[in-house]
């Protein structure tokens, strides 16, 4: 399955958030598309991103690298990048690489949009 991407803007207590809904497989072939999307959003001035990964079937280290790169870009603008994920097999990859300490991971888009810490 290929990668699908869609974005929408949502208002939260901390201000506007851009939700990036990702579906399909994020791997060495598709990760560049996600990278382009994140770079484009930051270039357009969206610095508070919520990446919804509930529709992701597969994630590898290339995908992790893109997410870390996105985090770096939004932080340069004092922004934030939050993840939404409940899938154990995806969460496991964040755990074994120690990235659960780097990304705030939420159980729902609402929770991520409303987070203000």
């Amino acid at each position: 399955m290929d990668l699908s991407l869609s974005t929408r803007n949502v208002s939260g207590p901390g201000g506007d958030r851009t939700v990036v809904e990702v579906g399909g497989e994020i791997d060495v072939y598709t990760a560049p598309k996600l990278r382009e999307q994140l770079v484009e959003l930051v270039n357009d001035g969206s610095y508070h991103l919520v990446v919804d990964m509930e529709g992701v079937d597969f994630l590898d280290s290339t995908g992790l690298g893109v997410l870390v790169g996105g985090l770096k870009r939004v932080r340069a603008h004092e922004g934030s990048l939050r993840l939404v994920c409940n899938q154990e097999r995806i969460l496991k990859i964040f755990r074994i690489t120690g990235l659960t300490k780097v990304f705030p991971i939420h159980g729902s888009v609402d929770e991520a949009v409303n987070a203000t810490d």
């Binding site: 770096k72 932080r75 690489t97 120690g98 990235l99 300490k101």
Partner: peptide
């Protein structure tokens, strides 16, 4: 298992 890359490193 590592602590992951430093978040500010590309």
């Amino acid at each position: 298992v590592r602590g992951g890359p430093a978040p500010d490193d590309e």
